[in-house]
Design a binder for these strands. Structure first.
Lengths: 249, 249
DNA sequence: AGGAATTTGTGCGTATGTATC
DNA sequence: AGATACATACGCACAAATTCC
């Protein structure tokens, strides 16, 4: 495989993602790193495919993934563009890849801060995590920000069978590597249910609304490529600051 | 093209959809008509492709569309199944194809009733409908039901240049044909922004919440294949009865 | 238990149409 | 009008997961 910076595909590993998803990851990082700016045109399909050493069909599949995620816009006869008026998403795969909150004002760079992390016996309201699941879970609570402004609270549950103990730092940053490399799976499908709710009582500054106030609520189920449910999360967001955004094509 | 009922692709026309989308439409109708029931397995790719007289790759692209819409589940080594615990969606293309509300209790057959239809000068809060747009719009207000129970109010705007006048009956039922055949375009991409809002003051029985009460709110922009914005809508839904559902893979 | 058959997932390559520049 | 670039469609080969005998 040729090695023409800034294009360099990660090598295939035992638990590697499919090639077309690695392409999507690579381009996501390129855009996040600023190699391609908002609204900028990417090289033509043929060019990109040659540089990456992949077939055009495979490259197209990777580009389609990013279009569905809203990161790219593709115009026939013109080219492939980084979606403008839309901040690049600096975080990669797993739950962050599917982060769907955007500022009402538009754009917004997503970041997160860990509020709490502990292992608990699985509560009844958390669904069963498929075959082989224990009754022990990790619960991660995070504060979600856009452009540095707190907009949402997040509570994530996943089964403890993958790792007995966790450290906060492992989840603070490049979690997309952690999920795949440490836990040995990657999230292939998610289902979101969006409605309204109340800010949970464990909220604290600097999240906007007070506990008990009305807000938007997202319930999420995440399945690995194996088909097993691997993650369940609830997100409470301030609907005056952010919206859940979905794009279909 | 072979003609083995119940598989019969619509013939290509001047404004025809791409083949892979016609396949998706066909299968959607088959499922809605009850030829395939919830949880049932579809014929293998090879079989389906042969019967329809299309290449396997084209068929796969059509199946992927339905998987993204949540209508089908595909399992490697096993087969393609109608998504169970999920009511078939009887309505086809256009805005209804992308209808994303589901009952909290699960399932639910979507129906709609026209509350009001009129032509108006485009208000400021409605976005511009691209090149060639007039300043005149059609505004359609509908009551949305799941399993016969009212769960949402819908207000749809689109430019009046396609047709000067509309009759209610044209929009009550098979709107998916109306959009493509009468207006000459098909919706290729939509963007939803989901947050919270207040029930509009034009609500009336039998929609659950009173005017001014908190509810879920969906703003939607719809683009045709040409890239032009063709439709803008707002939906207010009772979050105690229904949720906005999104599935990603 | 294990191997064969079936079925979808991934990847490759090509040809043609259509929109844009 | 011509060149460029993405959209669609076709078809093949092999891998991986499942199912069945």
């Amino acid at each position: 495989m040729p090695n023409l910076a800034p294009f360099e595909l990660p090598a295939a590993t035992a638990t590697a993602l499919p090639l077309y998803l690695r392409i999507a990851e690579l381009l996501t990082r390129e855009i996040a790193a600023g190699h391609y700016r908002s609204g900028e045109r990417l090289p033509a399909e043929e060019t990109l495919a040659q540089r990456l050493g992949v077939a055009t069909g495979t490259l197209r599949k990777g580009l389609d993934v990013l279009r569905q995620r809203g990161l790219l816009v593709r115009r026939q006869g013109s080219g492939t563009y980084v979606r403008s008026a839309d901040a690049p998403r600096p975080e990669g795969r797993s739950i962050y890849e599917f982060f769907r909150l955007e500022r009402v004002a538009g754009g917004g760079l997503p970041t997160a801060a860990v509020l709490d992390l502990r292992s608990l016996r699985k509560p009844a309201h958390v669904p069963d995590f498929g075959a082989g699941a224990t009754q022990r879970c990790h619960r991660l609570r995070r504060l979600r920000c856009l452009n540095g402004e707190p907009v949402a609270l997040e509570e994530i549950w996943f089964d403890a069978r993958h790792v007995p103990a966790l450290r906060e730092q492992a989840l603070s940053e490049a979690l997309y590597q952690f999920y795949q490399q440490s836990l040995g799976f990657w999230i292939a499908r998610v289902e979101d249910r969006v409605g309204t709710g109340q800010v949970p009582d464990w909220t604290r500054r600097p999240f906007g609304p007070e506990a008990g106030q009305a807000c938007g609520m997202i319930e999420r189920w995440s399945w690995a490529g194996s088909g097993l449910l691997e993650e369940y999360s609830t997100t409470w967001f301030d609907a005056t600051l952010a919206r859940y955004v979905a794009r279909w094509s």
